[in-house]
Every structure is written in C-alpha cells, then in structure tokens.
C-alpha cells in the first residue's frame, strides 16, 4: 500500500508513535472503562487496529503485539509464525523460504531493531509462545488490561526465576 513501506523503514518514527500512543491510552483507559461498555470498547479498538496496524504492519490480529520488540516489523507475517526468528531457511538474497518474493520479516526485524532508540535491542528477548486464544482481539486493550503479558504457568516458573536472579 502507498507509503506503508516508507513508514516501515522508519522504525524510529514508529516506535515514537507507539510510545506516545501507549502513554496516551494508559491515561485515557480508566475514563474509557467508565464511559464505554466492554463490548463497544473491544469492537472500536479491533476495528481501528485492523485499519491502522493493518495498513502499517500488515497486522494479523494476534492480539499480543510485540512490534516494539521486533523492529516495528510484524512477526506474524512470517509464514512459520516465528516469535523468535529468523529461521535457518532464509534465502541468500534475504528473502523468505516459503514466499520467495517476500523479504524475510525477521531479517528486516533485526535490521530495523538496530536502528531503534528506545526499544532497540529488545529483539534479543526470548518471546514466549503465542496465546492463540487472543487471536482477533484488541492488542491495545489486552496490553492495557495486562492480558498480553500472561504466560503459561510452566513458562512463568523460569521467567520469574530469571527476574529474581537478575
């Protein structure tokens, strides 16, 4: 789509927009919860995310957005759905093993991550498995409600320990 590639290659701008949106929504969220019913909130957010993130990132509505940890490049566009890519099948021209005409989203993610300021380096963080129950729900609301950081209990046993041991 016109302009979206131009924007995708400006991860610094996108991360600034992300950070600003997060702050604004965190402020607005309590008010929003008081004035708008849950079903309405979900519908409006899902619709606006489909439009905006769909245009910008070809968002697949996984409902647990980690764009800022992946160079503002949507990992769900990877045909293998990797959350910790790239896989070993990347072609010599940097394109996808499955879709030869598409640049590997994970190669792009690592390159763009290196250009980012605030969240740069987060691509090295080990991402947990995708919670498929959140598919097609609003990632913003899941973030505001803390749903997107919930982990399978077994996974948490190790993550908690890492935090404790620094």
């Amino acid at each position: 789509m016109p302009g979206s590639e131009w924007l995708k290659n400006r991860p610094r701008l996108l991360e600034a927009v992300y950070a600003a949106s997060k702050s604004a929504l965190r402020l607005l969220h309590p008010l929003l919860k008081r004035v708008a019913p849950a079903g309405w909130r979900e519908r409006v957010f899902v619709w606006s995310e489909e439009v905006s993130k769909g245009y910008l990132f070809n968002c697949q509505m996984c409902g647990q957005c980690i764009l800022h940890s992946t160079g503002m490049t949507c990992p769900m566009n990877c045909p293998k759905n990797l959350r910790n890519g790239p896989c070993g099948g990347v072609r010599q021209n940097g394109h996808c093993e499955v879709i030869p005409e598409m640049p590997c989203v994970w190669v792009q993610a690592w390159r763009r991550d290196a250009l980012m300021g605030r969240y740069g380096g987060e691509v090295r963080v080990l991402q947990p498995p995708v919670n498929r129950e959140l598919q097609n729900s609003s990632a913003w609301l899941n973030l505001l409600d803390g749903v997107d950081v919930e982990r399978p209990p077994g996974w948490s046993t190790i993550e908690l320990e890492e935090i404790e041991s620094g």
Binding site: P79, K80, N81, L82, R83, N84, G85, C87, L126, Q127, P128, P129, V130, R132, P152, P153, G154, W155, S156, T157, I158
Partner: peptide, 27 residues
C-alpha cells in the same frame, strides 16, 4: 496445513521446563 504453534525456542524451553521443573507448560 502448516502448524508452527511453537517455534524452535519455545520447544527448547518447554522441554527444559518439563525436565527441570517437572511440569507441562500448563504447570
């Protein structure tokens, strides 16, 4: 149909959790 519910790193850590914590991913 391709599955790819996990990636290799999820698989690694899940196997490690089963071994070291003695639990499934579900706990």
């Amino acid at each position: 149909r391709r599955v790819f519910d996990f990636d290799a790193l999820h698989l690694l850590r899940t196997a490690a959790i089963m071994r070291d914590r003695g639990v499934f991913l579900s706990g």
